[in-house]
Computed example of a mutant assay.
Amino acid sequence: MPQLETEPTAPDRASGRAAGRISRKHKAIVEAALACAIRDGVQATSVDAIAAQAGVGKQTIYRWWPSKAALYVDVYSEIVGKDVLMPDPGPLTTRLAAFLSKLFRLYRETPAGRILAGLVAAATSDPETRRALQEGLVLGRAELVEGLVGEAVADGTFGGDPAIANEIVVAVVWKRLVMAPDSLDDAFARTLADLALSAAASSPYRTGAAP
Rank of each mutant, 00 (worst) to 15 (best):
A199M: 14
G20K: 00
G81M: 06
L139M: 01
G159R: 08
G150T: 02
R206A: 11
W174H: 11
A210D: 01
K175A: 13
L85H: 11
L119T: 03
L116V: 05
A44Q: 14
A117K: 05
R206S: 14
E7I: 00
E167I: 02
L192E: 11
R114W: 07
A28K: 02
A163E: 09
D88A: 15
E31H: 11
G81Y: 07
G16I: 00
P127Q: 05
P204Q: 00
R24I: 00
T9M: 00
L4S: 02
G16W: 05
F99H: 15
L96V: 14
A112I: 01
V145P: 08
D185M: 12
S15W: 05
A122C: 09
L100W: 12
T110P: 09
E31Q: 13
K82N: 09
L197R: 09
Q59C: 07
D12T: 02
F99P: 05
A69R: 06
D74P: 01
L106I: 03
K27W: 07
A51T: 06
L119Y: 10
Q53G: 09
Y205K: 09
K27M: 03
F104W: 11
T157R: 05
E109L: 11
V153I: 08
R176Q: 10
L92E: 14
R130L: 04
R39W: 09
